[in-house]
Write a protein that binds this DNA or RNA. Structure first.
Lengths: 156, 156
DNA sequence: ACCGGTGAGTAGGAAATCCGGACTCACGAT
DNA sequence: ATCGTGAGTCCGGATTTCCTACTCACCGGT
């Protein structure tokens, strides 16, 4: 968590500094599914309770989750995703798809997600401008801040 | 790294077990940019050398990276993404976009990526079947394996 | 009134990781 | 002969994680 001397200004690194710690994205998976209570999270994620408590504090503080009291007399809380949290869901879906394809080879998938269109969701990352799927060969990186050097085929 | 008792079979968790450790996705960022040499990775990522060495071993072993000798007499190596590694690039792009929007509010972006269509890449995760952008409200989760409970609005 | 159960954490100490810096080894250049 | 580079390894100390237990507040049953 300590800000290492990452010499590169990078939104990927920044994003991972927030949600890249162990369990954080699994917390987001659960709250997106509606399982937002502490003990549910412990059970479903399998994280130590104290670590989970730490993660939840961080995620709330970062504006990715909110802590909402759903019962006052026995004080009971529920964590829910904020808009920013919901906007990370596509990352989760893309990751799920990658895992489905590369780690399970398409068999025995533990969960399916259906899109409102009626078909199973297969996420495709596309370019907003032209609508085409993003392929590595179609990308060119343009560093805009000092500290960046790009040498390879993707280089500008 | 130890397989915690994650009680939930989940491709997201599986994927994160491989690439969710600190620095792993940043390594992928660099190799996708073509910066695949050990010392470049150390400098650009800011990771301790021994940890980076460990990560690289794991990623190669997992089939996400390959280690390629590009000079024999002074033995020199370069890490490059495999097909599986390249297919994680959309995750990175989506994460970058999220970071750009939520962590930098659109100003002073450290890097731009241009799509072959000529416009700047703004990744949009869409449903392959209908082509529409994926929104949380449009998704329904269907657990297909034991161990899953889904209670919230996304529930089946 | 007592017992057990649930939800939401805290506490404590051992185990595992991470970190920074120094070190190696093999070469190539000056 | 010395310097520099690429690709790591090694070490000891700092930091995190992990596991187990514990708390506290409440509810429901008997």
């Amino acid at each position: 968590m300590a800000a290492t001397k990452d010499p590169r200004p990078c939104s990927i690194a920044d994003a991972l500094a927030l949600v890249g710690e162990k369990y954080s994205l699994l917390v987001l998976r659960e709250v997106c599914l509606g399982n937002g209570r502490f003990d549910q999270l412990v059970r479903n994620i399998g994280a130590p309770r104290d670590i989970l408590a730490t993660r939840l504090r961080r995620l709330v503080e970062a504006g990715i989750l909110t802590k909402r009291m759903y019962s006052e007399r026995p004080q009971r809380f529920e964590y829910r995703p904020t808009q920013a949290g919901l906007e990370l869901e596509p990352v989760l879906m893309t990751l799920k798809d990658w895992g489905d394809r590369h780690l399970r080879k398409g068999t025995d998938l533990p969960m399916a997600v259906e899109h409102v269109c009626g078909d199973e969701l297969v996420p495709v990352v596309t370019c907003r401008a032209c609508g085409k799927p993003v392929r590595h060969e179609d990308l060119t990186a343009y560093p805009q801040a000092p500290g960046w050097t790009v040498t390879g085929p993707t280089a500008a």
